[in-house]
Each structure stands twice: as structure tokens, then as C-alpha cells.
């Protein structure tokens, strides 16, 4: 456990040692500002409802960008050799790195609190759905990051990791849009599998443990696979 935190701490600091994390965060916030305020005054209502959809789209490229280097870069440079010959379990390495990415996601989400705060000065904002909305973002973002860590464990090339996890997350996000073309029986299954189906519930202000369970299982499953993939170097 101690080692997991040591790794998480190092990775989290590492984000701020390079400009990459700043660029990603700035880009995220800039795009968000642009797309949020444009329709806001058209609708003319003190609501941040549209913000969650926007952020969930923006997370699609952001999450893979945050995770792509976590394991791939260690493999490329060879630092993984020192890391994995320390007395640390592979699972501790994977979880430590994941926690660092989750930490940065939390920072990113905290920055966006400026939106509900400023909206609340313009009108009467209902904070209940804001809270569940952020919970939904944290869970969906967390699932995307876990997929990102998994993709990063498959390759030693950051770009490949970025696109692999980007494509997987995009697929999970978009499938709910294809429901009309899917046969009746399969549709409910596909719908259940999609990120958006579970996300929308929570963004609307409904907390359903099944939705949370869905995202948590994606996280658990991805990290377990990443752990296996790291371990596979020892399979003879």
C-alpha cells in the first residue's frame, strides 16, 4: 500500500514536471469555455446541464492523453526494469499509476467548478444535480483512465497507447447512438454496455448504484487486465 502511494505521488508530480499535462489541462479548459458559454445565453437558464455532456466528450481525448505514457514510456526508456525489480507487486505499480491519473482528473474537474460557481451568481442554481454530475464525470473519467492504463500496458509507444484507448473509449461512448440500427434483443444489452447510458442517469441527478457499479467494474476489469499484461513478461 505504501509503495502504491509512493508511485502515485511520483507520477502525479511527474505530470507537473513536463509541459504535457499543462497543455492538456489548458486545452480542455479552453475548449470547454468556448463551447459552454456559446449556447448558455441562448438558453437563458441558470443551469449547467449541458456542461456534463460537453465534458464527457472532451474527456474522450483527454483521458488517453493523461494515461498514454504511464507504462508505455517506462517500457520505451527502460526505467521499468528498475521499477519492477524493486520489491513491489505488479498490481501496486498499476494501481499507483492509475491513482496518479485519477488525481490529475480530479484537479481538472476541480478547475471546472468555476462554471457552476459563476452560474450560481447569475441565477438560482440547484446544487444537487451538480454534485451527481461531477460524480458521474469522475466515474466515467475514471473508467476511461483505466482503459488508458490498460492500453499503455500493451505497447511501448505512447501514440499507439493514445489511439488504442481513445478508440476503445469512443466505441463505448458512441454505441448508444446506434441503438436504432441494432436488433431489438441486442439493443438493451448494447445500451447497457455504453458509457453514455449510465452517465446520463447520473448527470440528470439520479444516483443509481447500478450505474456506479458499471463504471467501477470497467475500472476493475481494465486494471486487472493491465496487471496481467505487465505480469506476462514473466510467463515463460
Amino acid at each position: 500500500m505504501q509503495r502504491t502511494l509512493t508511485i502515485a505521488k511520483r507520477e502525479f508530480r511527474g505530470y507537473f514536471n513536463s509541459p504535457a499535462a499543462y497543455i492538456v489541462v489548458c486545452l480542455f479548459l479552453t475548449l470547454m469555455g468556448f463551447f459552454f458559454w456559446n449556447p448558455f445565453f441562448l438558453i437563458n437558464r441558470a443551469s449547467v446541464r449541458g456542461m456534463y455532456d460537453l465534458m464527457s466528450v472532451l474527456l474522450l481525448p483527454t483521458a488517453p492523453a493523461l494515461t498514454m505514457g504511464l507504462l508505455a514510456e517506462e517500457k520505451r526508456t527502460g526505467t521499468i526494469e528498475i521499477l519492477l525489480t524493486m520489491p513491489v507487486r505488479d498490481s501496486e505499480v498499476v494501481i499507483g499509476k492509475y491513482l496518479a491519473a485519477l488525481g490529475l482528473l480530479a484537479v481538472l474537474l476541480a478547475c471546472t467548478l468555476a462554471y457552476p460557481l459563476s452560474v450560481s451568481t447569475l441565477g438560482n442554481l440547484d446544487w444537487g444535480p451538480v454534485l451527481t454530475g461531477y460524480l458521474a464525470l469522475l466515474l466515467e473519467g475514471g473508467a476511461m483512465l483505466a482503459v488508458g492504463v490498460l492500453a499503455s500496458s500493451w505497447t511501448d509507444n505512447q501514440l499507439i497507447a493514445f489511439f488504442t484507448s481513445g478508440i476503445i473509449c469512443f466505441a463505448f461512448w458512441i454505441i448508444s447512438r446506434f441503438l436504432p440500427f441494432i436488433p431489438q434483443g441486442a439493443a438493451s444489452v448494447v445500451e447497457w454496455l455504453s458509457f453514455d447510458y449510465h452517465f446520463q442517469d447520473m448527470a440528470r441527478g439520479v444516483i443509481d448504484t447500478r450505474d456506479a457499479f458499471y463504471f467501477l467494474s470497467i475500472i476493475g476489469f481494465s486494471l486487472a487486465l493491465a496487471f496481467r499484461s505487465l505480469e506476462s513478461r514473466r510467463w515463460s
Binding site: 511520483r10 514536471n17 513536463s18 526508456t77 527502460g78 528498475i82 524493486m86 520489491p87
Partner: peptide, 30 residues
């Protein structure tokens, strides 16, 4: 792994850290 110290051929270290930070990180990991 607790009983060994290992210097791999690549001597790949975390380039973005200070020497002191790096050694403290390794010590904690150890």
C-alpha cells in the same frame, strides 16, 4: 527483490526528477 540492488544495462533513470528526489523515491520504494 528485497535482497538485491540492480543496475540494468540501460541505466534508465527517471529523467524528469532531481537526483535527490529520485534517490528518495527509490529509498521509499525499497
Amino acid at each position: 527483490r528485497s535482497a538485491i540492488g540492480y543496475l540494468p544495462e540501460s541505466t534508465a533513470l527517471y529523467h524528469d526528477m532531481l537526483v535527490l528526489e529520485y534517490l528518495e523515491f527509490v529509498a521509499e520504494m525499497r
